[in-house]
Simulated scan of single mutants.
Amino acid sequence: MENQITVEKATTKKPKPEADQLEFGRSFTDHMFILDYDVEQGWHNPRIVPYQPIILDPAAIVFHYGQTVFEGLKAYITNGGETQLFRPQKNMQRLNRSNERMCIPSIDEELALEAIKELVRIDREWIPTAPGTSLYIRPFVISTEPYLGVAPSKKYQFIVILSPVGAYYKEGINPVKIAVETEFARTVKGGTGEAKTAGNYASSLKAQELVAKEGYAQVLWLDGLEKKYIEEVGSMNVFFKINGEVVTPELNGSILEGVTRNSVIRLLDHWGIPHSERKISMDEIYQAYQNGELEEAFGAGTAAVISPIGELAWKGEKLEINQGETGPISKKIYDTLTGIQYGTEDDPFGWTVTVS
């Protein structure tokens, strides 16, 4: 594969939204990256072009059988004026794990990362600098072969687009209300839950739509078989602090292995805070709440970073956590992660990558 990335600059620049008008995922920068695949040439023709519509055959496999994966990471402007990424290698590794699960050819991770860095360099002026803002990076792969047969595609495109964003939840670091889902299932062990693929999110929409009408920000998913064990929130992994110990559901084949999840666990290790990855039932959470031992709960993900949970709705009851306030562990993790991302905190782990 020819690794030389060609660049075609946009001749007309789009207006940039003001920082206080940013909505998550609504605005997009002037350029995008595209990489093609076919069985004869493999991955080839890496290029940065002006942001534009994608032209696909109506029979493209992605439309009919959902063979697609995606990733999400961010670029930040530090206080020193540098541009940096947060653990992008982990995202590229996870992209290829998702590719493997969805029968998509693996991508050269070094080339993908260099493409992202070059795209961010070109559209650097789009990175917002107001507190809490960043440039969201969305790499994704779509199957493009026109074929109405249930089989892996022989053609693909790997594309990267960029979007200046503010907070994912309007609450920001303030606690959100979450409803525990007891009817629908997002995925099951052996399914595609551990892959970052579109179908997982499509299957979550109905439950999300219903709880939003009741004022809840997200759904907390239970396992798809017994509806007993906690898995994850729609857009985040989830953590609970119970009687001094931070616990999170263990990876089981139906839970996405989050980059922020891993970062939280590394920080807890670093600080010597007791923690474990294991099966956690809603019955256990409810009992801990009844006993006064449920001290904190929070979600962790790229979009929101850390989102404290102030209330869990389950079986007609509302479990208020930490009086609906942000807990000290949630706040410390949020401040540390965002501090590393924006360059205001030391990075003892070597997580940040500077975009020169």
Rank of each mutant, 00 (worst) to 15 (best):
L111Y: 01
L111S: 03
L111D: 02
L111P: 01
A112G: 09
A112T: 00
L113N: 01
L113I: 01
L113K: 07
L113G: 00
E114N: 10
E114A: 07
E114D: 12
E114V: 02
E114F: 00
A115E: 03
A115R: 00
A115N: 03
A115F: 05
I116T: 13
I116Q: 03
I116E: 02
K117S: 09
K117G: 06
E118F: 07
E118K: 15
E118S: 14
E118V: 11
E118I: 11
L119V: 13
L119K: 07
L119A: 12
L119T: 09
V120W: 03
V120Y: 04
V120G: 05
V120K: 02
R121V: 10
R121K: 15
I122K: 06
I122D: 01
D123T: 10
D123K: 08
D123C: 10
D123M: 11
R124E: 12
R124A: 15
R124N: 14
R124P: 00
E125M: 01
E125A: 13
W126A: 05
W126D: 01
I127H: 07
I127Q: 05
I127S: 06
I127A: 05
I127C: 07
P128C: 09
P128W: 04
P128M: 10
T129A: 15
A130W: 00
A130T: 09
A130G: 08
A130E: 13
A130P: 05
P131H: 09
G132C: 12
G132Q: 09
G132T: 08
T133Q: 05
T133E: 04
T133D: 07
S134H: 04
S134W: 03
S134T: 06
S134N: 05
S134L: 05
L135D: 03
L135K: 02
L135Q: 03
L135S: 06
Y136T: 04
Y136A: 05
I137R: 06
I137V: 14
I137F: 08
R138D: 11
R138E: 12
P139T: 08
P139Q: 10
P139C: 11
F140D: 03
F140W: 02
F140E: 02
F140Q: 03
V141D: 02
I142H: 07
I142M: 10
I142N: 02
S143A: 15
S143V: 05
S143L: 07
S143N: 07
S143I: 04
S143Y: 01
S143E: 02
T144G: 06
T144Y: 01
T144D: 01
T144H: 04
E145C: 11
E145T: 13
E145V: 12
E145R: 08
E145A: 14
E145P: 03
P146W: 03
P146I: 08
P146E: 06
P146Q: 09
P146T: 08
Y147F: 13
Y147A: 15
L148K: 05
L148Y: 06
L148W: 03
L148A: 13
G149H: 13
G149E: 15
G149P: 04
G149W: 07
G149T: 14
V150L: 15
A151K: 15
A151T: 14
P152T: 14
P152A: 14
P152E: 11
S153H: 10
S153D: 08
S153I: 10
S153W: 10
